[in-house]
Design a protein around this nucleic acid. Structure first.
Lengths: 146, 146
DNA sequence: ACCGATTGTTGGTGTCACCATCAATCTTGT
DNA sequence: ACAAGATTGATGGTGACACCAACAATCGGT
């Protein structure tokens, strides 16, 4: 094998799960670098959900973002401490905490959104807009089938 | 928010890096379960490379599979102990170990390949064959651009 | 009132990608 | 030939992540 070239084995290049995983590694590396020093990807997902759906319990927050309840706790605590979220007990259900996005949290979300948008462009710079859309649509169908 | 439904925020469903990552989570979960008790995904990748390219140094093995040198060490050690790989010093370069796939390793690779193939079908059961191919092709272009 | 399910929370597990460092060895530029 | 720099295998470590088990408190249905 030539040390200067690094061809990928055909078995892997043709394997959907491998290709998807490698793409995720690249995507996460780019977004993590874009978000460095601000927030985590998980926190961005939670902010997005609260912005779109309004105040929510932590369990619902976890369900719609695919994040485990226990991991939601960590993220919520951190963002409450940063002033991005407000946490109050649900008067109608003693088990739940209702989590609300604060104005500072909304501002933060928009900041993160801009940083992440740049990362998307870099990630998909080999694809046309319609190809990018196609990838997103196809993968969403994969996700909906699971 | 309705507790019984879990819609994904539009900000996330439209975000390539998020969709790709969620697909990778599903893909890895399926392949890890399929491979449970046999080998890791990393080891499968190394076996694939050795099968296709023949004997190789550990550094080259890592380069063509995208695995860090330090992680290659762990995988190689495990598979040498299992009899799937043979490790000998490179007579032409005192720094290198040359790693070779044994017949038992080749058999093992084919076993793993069958297990992984099943996982692919489950992962992509919502897509037609041509759509599956399209996703793989598009993602490979993304990977080649990085 | 009881039973099962749900909620927030704690703690923990294993994997993964990645980094820094090291001694040994090779390659190069002069 | 020799110094300087790069490469190799290897060790150890880090942080993020996905996931799981358990718990007390609380709710819902019957």
């Amino acid at each position: 094998m030539d040390s200067t070239t690094h061809p990928t084995p055909a078995r892997l290049r043709v394997l959907p799960s491998w290709v998807i995983n490698q793409a995720a590694i690249a995507a996460n590396r780019l977004t993590d670098r874009a978000l460095a020093g601000t927030s985590s990807r998980r926190q961005f997902a939670m902010l997005s959900a609260l912005d779109e759906f309004g105040p929510s319990s932590q369990a619902d927050l976890g369900r719609c973002t695919g994040i485990d309840r226990s991991d939601v706790v960590t993220g919520v605590n951190a963002m409450v401490e940063q002033g991005f979220l407000q946490q109050r007990p649900d008067p109608a259900d003693g088990r739940r905490n209702i989590v609300t996005l604060t104005p500072a949290g909304k501002d933060h979300l928009e900041r993160l959104s801009a940083l992440i948008a740049d990362a998307q462009n870099e990630l998909l710079r080999a694809l046309s807009p319609s190809e990018s859309k196609m990838i997103v649509d196809l993968l969403n169908r994969v996700l909906d089938s699971g």
